[in-house]
Design a binder for these strands. Structure first.
Lengths: 152, 152
DNA sequence: GTGGAAATCATACTTTTGGATGAGAGGGAA
DNA sequence: TTCCCTCTCATCCAAAAGTATGATTTCCAC
């Protein structure tokens, strides 16, 4: 249940907002604020929240789209196509593969942790396991090996 | 999209709760229903809009660095070609480029030093300068950047 | 020959990685 | 329910990487 926290986070946030909503409404009826101002505030706040939620939804589960191989005149272009068989044989779990991709993009452990909403020790555990499976001892080696195996 | 449903479910639940809350309040403040419902609708709509916007922001962000495949005579050229112009603009000297290649192969500083018959501090100096020119701060970032620029 | 640029190496320091090990929480199967 | 597996997080330690600064050598141009 890796998303449990995420969902909980969203939920808490929404709950807080609901309370805020009530509060603002209260102020509205006491202080007689301008309706348009009130509406604007609500709309803005919820838009911002929505943007944040939307980005996090996508970020948390963007599975890597396997690019379709480009074939022209029966010639398959080497478009960094993923070798599914090698990838399968590596037996990487979702987290490991996810982290591998971030490593390949030059992310530090700290950045990976922030991106995936995980603690740094967790990242280290995953990277260690990843290195075992790839039979390497460092992130640059991991990237190199992954490219050799055409899984990136 | 397995989490999407979850989040959606949770969101819906909260929305329902919010509505119930509004209704409950209505019992005690007749005439307030109009604004309450209105507010809920506004909040919901703008949250949805926000989510949509957020997801689209990320989606558009993702499709940046896809280099256009080179097509000559209807044959897609292998994209592993080195972009000589970029390489030239980087202004790397021989050592730096040499070291960049070794880094990309997963070599440690020690291994690079042994390979090139240099001292480790020398390697560090070169890598530092290399990072400056590539505008990065680590070897994995350097490799990533170099691939972006097609100089590897 | 002198100035200056480039390459080499050093020293000292901080940050990041990697390795080893254990523990706790949650989900799924018997 | 209980057991097991996966994912998560923690701590401690060692190694590697990165930063900053300066010294030296070489070599080329003036």
């Amino acid at each position: 249940m890796k998303n449990f926290k995420l969902v909980l986070l969203f939920g808490s946030l929404l709950a807080v907002l609901a309370v805020l909503l009530q509060f603002f409404e209260y102020k509205y009826f006491i202080g007689r604020l301008d309706t348009s101002v009130y509406t604007s505030v609500v709309a803005t706040v919820f838009t911002v929240v929505g943007v944040w939620v939307g980005m996090n939804i996508l970020k948390s589960e963007k599975e890597v789209p396997t690019p379709a191989p480009i074939i022209v005149n029966n010639i398959v272009a080497p478009t960094n196509e993923i070798n599914e068989e090698n990838l399968k044989n590596l037996n990487l779990n979702d987290r490991e593969y996810e982290i591998l991709q971030l490593i390949a993009k030059g992310y530090s452990n700290k950045e990976i942790a922030q991106t995936l909403f995980l603690a740094i020790p967790t990242i280290k555990t995953h990277t260690s396991n990843l290195y075992s499976k790839l039979e390497v001892r460092s992130r640059t080696q991991a990237v190199h090996r992954a490219r050799e195996l055409e899984v990136l």
